[in-house]
């Protein structure tokens, strides 16, 4: 796993993605809302892209902030 490897957090709804972005940015994470890759989900909305190395820490923040996530997918 390299520092530049990216993953996406996929949520049940974009509402959760926007909440997650807010919580992670408040905690100084570098992340970006991007369209959900079509091969990963039928969602119409957005998911949150960040470095794979930061995923575990991000999940902790989201758990504390009561944001459920659907799943994590690596982008490669």
């Amino acid at each position: 796993m390299t520092a530049s490897e990216l993953s996406v957090l996929i949520f049940h709804t974009s509402n959760h993605a926007f909440r997650a972005e807010k919580l992670l940015k408040q905690a100084d994470f570098v992340c970006k809302l991007v369209p959900v890759p079509r091969h990963l989900s039928s969602e119409c909305g957005v998911c949150l892209r960040l470095e794979t190395a930061r995923v575990e820490a991000a999940l902790e923040v989201l758990k504390a902030g009561r944001v459920d996530i659907d799943r994590v997918e690596r982008l490669s």
Partner: peptide, 22 residues
């Protein structure tokens, strides 16, 4: 339209709704 598309204007609308919830 918030939460329906993935482009930047839709994202901006979604952020606004999230901000209103907060």
């Amino acid at each position: 339209n918030p939460g329906r598309s993935g482009h930047r204007l839709s994202i901006e609308a979604g952020r606004l709704v999230e901000s209103a919830r907060e």
